[in-house]
Amino acid sequence: MTWIAPDIDRTDPVRTGPERPMLQSWLDFHRRTLLGKCADLDPAHLKHRGVPPSGLSLHGLVRHMSEVERGWFRNAAAGQRLAYLYCAATNPNGDFDDIDAADPAADFAVYHRETRLADAAVAELPLDHLCHHPAGLEFSLRWVYLHLIEEYARHNGHADLLREQIDGRTGD
């Protein structure tokens, strides 16, 4: 039997209250939105690059966001200095480019692991905590949350177009 991306339940973001839970709820909302764009698709559909000449695919977006979560929360914010998952200096777009032989079930499991570990890595850090980018730049953890929300929102727009190309499904 072929693996199929699972259905996702998505809850609305928190509308009132302290800043941290609001930021986390928006991040979780966008995480679930990306997975929802992949729901009920088989590996061939997830790998489909439906907007030429772009090499974007839903599978590639999930891999990319695993890299983003690891890079910003675990490396920049928590200082863990972990290697990239799919990319390298000699292959900077491996997350998008190297999907032909990649296993979506394994990569989705990596994504779920990375989001859990990312949340755990920053759970005790204050929003004003200084995060250190490899290029020598500093950002607050608050900025990192906002950046990831923005990155997910942008890529979720890409995911919406890709999903529409696959089966006509659109959504919010």
Score class of each variant (00 low, 15 high):
Met22Ala: 11
Trp26Ala: 15
Phe29Thr: 14
Phe29Leu: 13
His30Lys: 05
Thr33Leu: 10
Thr33Gln: 12
Thr33Asn: 06
Leu34Gly: 02
Leu34Met: 13
Leu34Thr: 11
Leu35Arg: 12
Gly36Gln: 11
Lys37Glu: 09
Lys37Cys: 14
Cys38Ala: 13
Cys38Gly: 09
Ala39Gly: 11
Asp40His: 15
Asp42Arg: 11
Asp42Glu: 10
Pro43Trp: 00
Pro43Val: 00
Ala44Pro: 12
His45Gly: 14
His45Arg: 02
His45Tyr: 00
Leu46Lys: 00
Leu46Gln: 01
Lys47Ala: 13
His48Tyr: 14
Arg49Ala: 05
Gly50Asn: 12
Gly50Trp: 01
Val51Phe: 06
Pro52Leu: 12
Gly55Asp: 14
Gly55Lys: 08
Leu56Gly: 11
Ser57His: 09
His59Thr: 00
His59Lys: 04
His59Phe: 04
Leu61His: 02
Val62Gln: 01
Arg63Trp: 09
His64Trp: 05
Ser66His: 04
Glu67Asn: 07
Glu67Cys: 04
Glu67Pro: 02
Val68Phe: 11
Val68Lys: 00
Glu69His: 13
Glu69Met: 11
Arg70Gly: 07
Arg70Pro: 08
Gly71Tyr: 15
Trp72His: 13
Phe73Asn: 02
Arg74Val: 13
Asn75Pro: 10
Ala76Thr: 07
Ala77Lys: 04
Ala78Cys: 12
Ala78Gly: 06
Ala78Pro: 08
Gln80Tyr: 03
Arg81Asn: 14
Ala83Phe: 03
Tyr84Thr: 12
Tyr86Arg: 05
Ala89His: 03
Asn91Gly: 06
Pro92Cys: 06
Asp95Ala: 14
Asp97Trp: 11
Asp97Thr: 14
Asp98His: 14
Asp98Phe: 12
Asp100Trp: 02
Asp100His: 09
Ala101Ser: 07
Ala101Asn: 08
Ala102Gln: 11
Pro104Asp: 01
Ala105His: 06
Ala105Trp: 00
Asp107Ser: 12
Asp107Phe: 02
Asp107Ala: 05
Asp107Tyr: 03
Phe108Lys: 00
Val110Tyr: 00
Val110His: 04
Arg113Phe: 02
Arg113Lys: 10
Arg113Ser: 03
Glu114Lys: 03
Arg116Met: 09
Ala118Gly: 15
Asp119Val: 07
Asp119His: 15
Ala120Lys: 07
Ala120Phe: 05
Leu127Glu: 01
Leu127Ile: 07
Leu127His: 13
Asp128Asn: 11
His129Asp: 00
Leu130Gln: 13
Cys131Asp: 14
His132Gln: 12
His133Phe: 06
His133Gln: 06
Leu137Asn: 07
